[in-house]
């Protein structure tokens, strides 16, 4: 029994990191039609920046805030000066972000070295909480709460605010939004930066759990790709459900078949693509 409970909770907390990461990817795709290969780099850079700030200042929240802001600025600059020039050219855009992926990977290796490092947890969430006969790390429980909170906030932002309405309209008909007098290039830059910030946040949240190391960018990016494919590109709701599926599949898979790691994570993708090629919530 405790095996199921612990692995389910592990899967859920991992799923929440995945969701925060994938929400940014799917949002950027939904509006800008960019498959951002460098999304995992934003995750890794976010985690590393937070690590350095936390080591210097001892404040987890300060680390998170500075990581998000720094990566958002980086994302804004990248979108504004390079990606915007290739608007609507899917393959060159993907290749461009792939190039950035390698550049960021090498820079991170240069600055932070090759040894795996864990981001320190916030002091309040250091210990374990006892319930139902198990002692479970408080940080992982907090992650589940944070993930749900981020999901609700994103949903409220997209469905309940004016900027959310602009973004949703842009997903459906960019030309029309432009014709209504809205500065859509600015919205594009903002959404790309926001997506980058979400990835950085994923890196900070996942850092104490999964660690930061060269190659982590590929690993999480690959899982995020699986999540957005399962959920349907552009759908936040789909990304949430898909994160749960992929997170749980990966966790139980690794518990049962450690040598086949990652293999079970793609099983939801195989099944969903067989039944619904555009993903759970995707519009064809």
């Amino acid at each position: 029994m405790s095996f199921w409970l612990i692995n389910a909770l592990n899967g859920l907390s991992f799923a929440m990191v995945l969701f925060v990461l994938s929400a940014g990817l799917t949002l950027v795709f939904g509006l800008l039609r960019i498959i951002n290969m460098a999304h995992g780099s934003f995750y890794l850079l976010g985690g590393y920046i937070a690590l350095s700030v936390i080591q210097a200042s001892d404040h987890f929240m300060l680390g998170m805030a500075s990581a998000c802001v720094a990566v958002m600025l980086l994302g804004a600059a990248m979108q504004r000066w390079t990606l915007a020039r290739l608007h609507k050219q899917e393959l060159p855009q993907s290749l461009l972000t792939l190039g950035f992926l390698f550049m960021f990977a090498d820079l991170a290796f240069w600055i932070w070295g090759g040894n795996p490092q864990l981001v320190p947890k916030p002091a309040v969430l250091e210990g374990a909480i006892r319930f139902a006969g198990i002692a479970y790390p408080a940080y992982r429980l907090a992650l589940i709460g944070i993930g749900v909170l981020v999901a609700v906030l994103l949903w409220a932002l997209l469905e309940g605010t004016r900027i959310g309405a602009v973004v949703r309209a842009g997903m459906d008909d960019e030309e029309m939004v432009r014709a209504m007098g809205i500065n859509i290039p600015l919205v594009f830059t903002a959404v790309f930066a926001f997506g980058a910030g979400l990835a950085a946040m994923g890196g900070v949240l996942g850092g104490p759990l999964l660690g930061l190391f060269p190659g982590a960018d590929f690993e999480v990016a690959m899982l995020a790709f699986v999540v957005v494919t399962v959920g349907g590109l552009g759908s936040i709701r789909g990304a949430f459900i898909a994160s749960l599926l992929v997170g749980l599949a990966d966790n139980f898979g690794t518990a049962w078949f450690p040598q086949l790691s990652l293999f079970t994570a793609i099983i939801p993708m195989v099944i969903v693509l067989a039944l619904r090629p555009s993903g759970l919530m995707g519009r064809a």
């Binding site: 290749l95 461009l96 190039g99 550049m103 820079l107 240069w110």
Partner: peptide, 19 residues
Amino acid sequence: DRWLFVMGAIYVLFALYAP
């Protein structure tokens, strides 16, 4: 040792100027 960086930069240049 920065071959990976150079490779990334070549990707970026090709995507921007000679897709």
